[in-house]
Write a protein that binds this DNA or RNA. Sequence first.
DNA 1: CGCTAATGCAACGCAGTGTTGCGTTAACGT
DNA 2: ACGTTAACGCAACACTGCGTTGCATTAGCG
Lengths: 197, 197
Amino acid sequence: MRRRPGGRSARVRRAVLAATIEELAEVGYGAFGFDGVARRAGVHRTTLYRRWRSREDLLVDAIAEYAQVAVPIPDTGSVRDDLLRYATSIVRSVAQPTIRAVVAAYVAEADHNPELAEAVRRYWADRRRLARAMVDRAIERGELPASADADRVFDHVLGPIYLRLLVTREPLAEAELARIVDSALAAARTPSAPGTA
Amino acid sequence: MRRRPGGRSARVRRAVLAATIEELAEVGYGAFGFDGVARRAGVHRTTLYRRWRSREDLLVDAIAEYAQVAVPIPDTGSVRDDLLRYATSIVRSVAQPTIRAVVAAYVAEADHNPELAEAVRRYWADRRRLARAMVDRAIERGELPASADADRVFDHVLGPIYLRLLVTREPLAEAELARIVDSALAAARTPSAPGTA
DNA sequence: CGCTAATGCAACGCAGTGTTGCGTTAACGT
DNA sequence: ACGTTAACGCAACACTGCGTTGCATTAGCG
C-alpha cells in the first residue's frame, strides 16, 4: 500500500477547502490564516501544514474548487439571450460572498505568487474558450458578422460587471445587464474605428 | 498650544503613507503590517499605533493619497482622442506596482471595513463625475447623440481595462485601447436594445 | 486482522500585534 | 531667545498566529 486517497483524506480535503472559502468570506484575506481554517474545518493545524505549504497554496486549490462550479454557457438560439443569461449567472456568482472573497483574495495576492497567477491564468483561459461558443454560434446563425471578435464581446460583457462589483463597488441591478449586453453587441457589430481611422 | 500639524508631524505622515504603498507593492496585502511600514518609513512602530488604529486605517489614507494624483481629463476636441488618452492614462496608472497594490488591497478588504468602503465610494463617485465632462462636451459638439449615457461609456472604457489588468490578469497592449474606446463609442451611439426590444 | 499512511496532540522558537511607562526631541506661543 | 508641551523614540510586556518536530493514535487498505 502506497497512497490512501480515499476515505478520510478526501473528507479532510473537502472540509478544509470548504472552510477555506468560508473563512475567506468571513474574515477577509488580511485576517486569513491556517489557525482559523483548521478550527473551522475541525481538523488539527498540523494536518494543514503537512498538505499545504502556505495560505497561497490553499488559495490555489480553492480556485480549482471555484472552477468546478463553472458558470454554464447557455444556448437559447439568440446571442442576446445567451449573453443575458450568462451575464446574470456571472453577477449572481460574484454576488456570493464566498466566490467574491476568492476573487478578491487572488486579485490582492497573485502578483506575489507565481503558482497562484498561473492557476488564475488557466482558469480564465478556460472561461474565455468556453464563452467563445456563444459568439461562434451567433456568427453561424447570421446574427453577428464573421468579423465579430469573441474576446471583445467577453471583455465588454464581463468588464463592466467586475468593474462595478469589485473595483468601484457600485450597485449593479440585473436590469442594467440588458444595456451592458446590448453595448457589447453593438461593439461586436462595429467593424473597426468609426470616428477616425 | 493645542495641536502641531506642521513640521515634524507632517513629515512623518508623508513618510509613513509613502512607505505604506511601497510596502504594499513589495510584499502584498497579505504580508503587510505595521512593523514593515515603520522600518521602511524610518519611524518607530509606536508612532504608527498612536496615529492609525489598524492597517485598514492606513489604507484609507493611502487611497486619499492615490486620489491626489488623479488621472487628468483630456480635452482635445474629439471624444475618441479624449477617451483614448484617458484610457492610456488609466492603463499606465494601474500598471504602476504601487497603485496596483492599493487597488488590489482595497478590493480584498473593503467588504470587511465600512470606512474603507466609504473612501472607495467617494473616490469613484468623483472619478465618474469628472469623466462625465468628456461625454458632455461630445454631445455639445454633436459627436454623440443627446441620449449618450456617460456612465455607460465609463463602464465600457474602464471595465475591460480593469478586467484584463486585475481580474483575468491577461496582457493588455496600449494598441488594444483604440478598439476598447471604439466599442464604448459604438455603445454610446446605440439608442437601446438593437436585437430584441 | 495486521500494516502503515494519515491524523491528532503537545511543545517549542520565532515574528508580528497592540499596549504601557518613561525619557527625549522639537514645534509653537510668548 | 526661551519655556511649554505635543509628538516622537525607546524598552518591555503579554498575546496571538506561524511553522516545525517528535511521538501517540486512528483508520484505510491489502
